[in-house]
């Protein structure tokens, strides 16, 4: 009997309290509990984290690289969304 290919999980680690979980990589595991334990053993052997999330890779919906330009185009031509767009006289503080 052949071993079934175990599913892939994306791993997110919170480095310390107060920070976001950050994607660190992925791991193969048969179920969520094993995925958590394997992720701990692989990605946090030196105190890299205080919390881990694992998400089935097949549950991640991602934007397509080919459509990157058109997908993000709406934010490319709006410099007025940035504070540096505005002229403020010299010497004005707290703006």
């Amino acid at each position: 009997m052949s071993t079934p290919n175990s599913p892939l999980w994306e791993v997110f680690v919170r480095p310390s309290r107060g920070t976001n979980h950050v994607h660190v990589g992925s791991i193969h595991a048969a179920d969520a509990t094993l995925a958590l334990q394997n992720a701990r053993d692989l990605y946090t052997r030196r105190g890299e984290g205080v919390s881990i999330w694992v998400v089935r890779s097949s549950d991640v919906t991602a934007s397509s690289p080919e459509e990157k330009d058109s997908f993000f185009e709406p934010s490319a031509d709006k410099p007025y969304r940035h504070p540096t767009f505005y002229t403020i006289p010299d010497g004005v503080e707290h703006l």
Binding site: T87, I88, P89
Partner: peptide
């Protein structure tokens, strides 16, 4: 920051 600056600029 952008909100406050655009208001100040407009007010000026």
């Amino acid at each position: 920051s952008f909100h406050q600056r655009q208001g100040f600029e407009s007010q000026l």
